[in-house]
Design a protein around this nucleic acid. Structure first.
Lengths: 288, 288
DNA sequence: ACCTTTTTTGGAACGTTAGTATAAATAAAT
DNA sequence: ATTTATTTATACTAACGTTCCAAAAAAGGT
């Protein structure tokens, strides 16, 4: 992706955070980011498409940050889960993702709607997976119900808790309270065997293709971000990794390029590059 | 209110249900309801104002229907509560209230936003009051938490349950499940004394003025609807009651008119009219 | 350095929207 | 019958997202 384009995305995001999506006109974006109308419509098919790019970028970041919190931790520890959720919530607030979501979700554009819906399903899936880590195997038939209710609680409590205690209050008490409620509730429904929605529905709602595609990519990205941290002052190193991220994001990543870059780093970071190479070899096909 | 105006409101609501708020242009409404643009802006300050009138009308209807279900029933019976909720949900679906809500809530107009927010607070208040009927007194510190969580669950489950089983499926299982979860949860937090939000916040959020104004009016309306049922074939009787509803809805109800109509019915319905007269005398001031 | 191709520019123009203004026509009230 | 209020029809404004395009600038190739 172009640096210029990325700058437009960032600047537009700032404006959207400040004034909202609808209240920010294309002209505002042009003025603020210093490009012309023609270029804008070269980069983005429409204003909606720009918003989707913002969402994509924000999602990637948040998912990576969330998964990074799990590294080296006990996946079965509820405390880790809570920390992850809290972090998501603060990131959400900073990016104003949810308000932007909501502002746009109900305004007719079907493509945008579907895009957001997939995002929500991914959140449900993540809740469900993480709850599975924490709870007993007997609870598995009730994972979707639990994920839905946890999601519901968090969304609503954000509203009201902020309304009560101000916008910048920590959400940790809410998260702790909600997760505790859900864990208790899961025990209860496991005993009484009450199920509303089967967890298998999630596989229907979130097509596997969609899921897997992101799954290994997000793994790769988490390795890359780890690598970035390992030598964050080396400019060439960072350039390489940023290029890798770019290339992996494209429709047809050129494997030979990726291979050589990974190879060029293997001397310094043997362990990580090995992991990276394995992931790439497994999922990325040589272009014919 | 004008019959002509009411017709516009109904026709516009039909269009909104069919195509959504934003996708319905003023011109569509003019064509479909057979009035001119000038008249439209005589009746309504703006398109948003029209939507608010639609909401108001729908709310009144739904509140009355909901309260009617309670008449002569045991307020402490969870089953009655569940029936009420289910009825609200089907009414919501028929009027597409929630989608319209959401479509409009995030589109900048602050007046509309505030209006909707008050509506949501009223729902929370109602949940809270009804849960108080059902549960033990010790649970009272946890009523707001419970109301918020119940609301959250219902909203989210509507989405996913309909997604799973189609749009016209009965919501009763969802309601039963959710209410049961909440009741269990209230027991639990009463024991552990975990509170996130104090019920007193509700009094802050929903200004008393706003609340009381609707409170006695809704009581009056529930008496009127009872009276309507008592002799639903008598046209004059119904005309009188409908007129009463109209007059009570206006800014300055003419007490002398209301008094005489109520008096004219007292021969046939002594008990009910007495109740009605008491409510009116208590809350309605003679115009100077 | 020169030519070619790509990208960028910025303004004009289009279609659609909510809302305003207004003069003429119609209906209601006195 | 005359006044008053309401309704109609139409033209108009301002804003918006989007399209189009010719000219300018930048990048790339030789």
């Amino acid at each position: 992706m172009n640096d210029r384009k990325r700058n437009v995305i960032e600047k537009a995001h700032e404006l959207f955070i400040e004034k909202g999506f609808h209240a920010t006109s294309i002209q505002d974006i042009l003025d603020y980011s210093g490009i012309s109308k023609g270029t804008f419509y070269n980069y983005f098919i429409s204003k909606n498409e720009l918003l989707m790019e913002i969402f994509r970028a924000a999602f990637r970041k948040m998912e990576m940050a969330r998964d990074a919190l799990l590294l080296g931790q006990d996946a079965g520890d509820p405390e880790v889960f809570m920390k992850q959720i809290e972090q998501q919530m603060t990131a959400n607030r900073e990016n104003k993702i949810i308000p932007l979501f909501e502002e746009v979700y109900f305004s007719g554009d079907n493509e945008l709607k579907q895009f957001i819906e997939i995002g929500q399903m991914k959140i449900l899936r993540w809740f469900s997976d993480r709850l599975a880590n924490i709870t007993d195997d007997h609870c598995s038939p009730y994972l979707l119900d639990a994920a839905i209710m946890l999601n519901a609680m968090l969304i609503q409590y954000v509203r009201f808790y902020r309304k009560a205690y101000g916008n910048s209050v920590s959400m940790l008490p809410v998260v702790r309270y909600s997760v505790n409620r859900i864990l208790n509730l899961m025990e209860e429904v496991t005993l009484s065997q009450e199920q509303l929605l089967s967890p298998e529905l999630l596989d229907v709602w979130l097509p596997v293709s969609n899921r897997e595609a992101l799954d290994w990519r997000s793994k790769i990205h988490s390795v890359i971000s780890r690598l970035k941290k390992l030598d964050c002052k080396n400019k060439v190193h960072l350039q390489k990794l940023t290029f890798l991220e770019e290339e992996l994001r494209s429709k047809e990543p050129r494997k030979f390029l990726i291979d050589s870059i990974v190879f060029s780093m293997s001397a310094d970071f043997n362990r990580e590059t090995h992991e990276l190479q394995a992931l790439i070899d497994e999922h990325l096909l040589e272009k014919a």
